[in-house]
Amino acid sequence: MGCCYSTSKRTRTPGYEEPTVLASQTPFTVSEVEALHELYKKLSNSIIEDNLIHREEFQLALFRNRNKKNLFADRIFDLFDLKRNGVIEFGEFVRSLGLFHPNAPLEDKITFAFRLYDLKQTGFIERDELKEMVLALLHESDLELSDDMIESIVDKTFSDADINGDGKIDQEEWKAFVSKHPSLIRNMTLPYLKDITLAFPSFVVRTEVEE
């Protein structure tokens, strides 16, 4: 039967989770999760047709270039890949994007940004990590700064954020720093997600589940 075939076909997709479940655990409605599934199908079949987002497919979507190396895109991919099995499954995609929803708790956005910048995952943002990220940003942009200038920027930022002066930024210091500089997590909110079904109507093929 048509209805049952459609359901079983979706169930066989690795990592597929029911929109009703995902909607109950994220800021998205069921319709929005279904719209995200249409986007997910496109992204997850752009290079390897297996309904899973591989790193190269993520890079391709972000940069229109599958081979573009970018420290921050790698970090985002790793954080989205909650099971750490090298791919972003649909449930991981929706749950992670939920953090970028305008209605997601600010606290969650601040924590995600902290984990993003804690490159070595030590529970702290250290000075060498901050410098590595500044160098990575300069590498991808046209901005050229002398090493002295870079050191000066890193020193100033670090001394502003490292309140207790122990040489590393902990989560509490990060929260305090972000509260003084809220623009730091501006990129943690994607206004499109507020109503993805209206912003991307072509992704909404049909609503299979009653809201």
Binding site: L62, A73, L116, S152, I153, K156, T157, Y192
Partner: peptide, 26 residues
């Protein structure tokens, strides 16, 4: 912007790799 007044995290946050809106471009 004078380098001394730059905030390193502000610089970093401008990375294209952190701009997920690109995922939604058709």
């Amino acid at each position: 912007v004078a380098p001394a007044t730059m905030n390193a995290f502000e610089l970093i946050s401008k990375s294209q790799g952190l701009n997920l809106s690109s995922l939604f471009e058709k």
